[in-house]
Design a protein around this nucleic acid. Structure first.
Lengths: 150, 150
DNA sequence: TTAAGTGCAAATATTTTGCTGTCAC
DNA sequence: GTGACAGCAAAATATTTGCACTTAA
């Protein structure tokens, strides 16, 4: 039984190791997909990409692994204003939170990092005495291009 | 054929009239539910409440009416961090946007209105040249009570 | 009158679960 | 060796759609 050709040395796998979570071929494939994704994959896309690495990966394993990653705060779950259907999108959680903007005309997703967003969360922590663990700011509207060509 | 006992004079109905959208018994029931809801109902709850007013209301009419209200910007659709299942919650859109905070321990939903939030949206409009139409800030974490009893 | 709206049943989409066999440690 | 994890199939949940009938305007 050959070892996988490409050992993905990403932080997701490192996290799993650190926390003593068992590593499997299938999880390795899914983690690799999440590591290398440019952005915003839904469950079906993750399944398809993972199966290219390990054809045995099943849809339920994808959902189970996504749940695991979510529980450990390693990925974020997004709606992206349901631009396409009712499913969710997932992305690695790295560095600072960012705002997602979905153009309701062309469907483009833009991201935006803002200090004000960080301050707003701090204000919530302070004023509401609420411990902020996850936050999701999604905005729907028109992007610069579509806004012009109204 | 008797007229409905209670004419709900809410703004939702007014909006429908203004925009020339046809009013039906079923829509009146659903609009009335949305008008008088204290908060955050999901589709099934809306169906149940609407059926108390007009027993003929069907689930698909609820979904069709919710879509209509959403399209007209009269209600907001929320996830509330999927505290219970994968469905959505709906609330009337009135006045200013607010932040929703969901306690991951006790499930309580808290709302918070903040000038910083308004400013953040203005910053997005300006810095990203993005026309903001809808925005949703949802925060998951621990409320004041649960935070204390950790 | 008639286009828009409705209920009903069935389809679709998304996610979860039970079970039995397999594999990482 | 054994407990955690996998695939598979089926269930559960959430939402949408086709169609024939009804109704608001």
């Amino acid at each position: 039984m050959p070892l996988p050709q490409t050992e993905v040395p990403g932080r997701l796998q490192a996290h799993f190791a650190e926390r003593g979570i068992r590593m499997t071929q299938q999880r390795r494939a899914i983690l690799s997909v999440m590591e290398t994704a440019s952005k915003h994959l839904d469950a079906s896309q993750i399944l398809r990409k993972a199966q290219k690495i390990d054809a045995s990966v099943d849809r339920s394993t994808v959902y189970r692994t996504l749940r695991l990653l979510k529980r450990h705060g390693l990925i974020d779950e997004l709606d992206l204003m349901h631009i396409n259907g009712e499913g969710h999108y997932y992305e690695r959680r790295l560095g600072r939170d960012h705002i997602h903007m979905a153009c309701l005309r062309c469907g483009k997703i833009t991201e935006f990092v803002s200090d004000s967003f960080e301050r707003l969360k701090q204000q919530v922590e302070k004023d509401c005495r609420f411990r902020v663990l996850i936050s999701r700011l999604e905005i729907g509207g028109y992007c610069a291009t579509c806004r012009g060509s109204q």
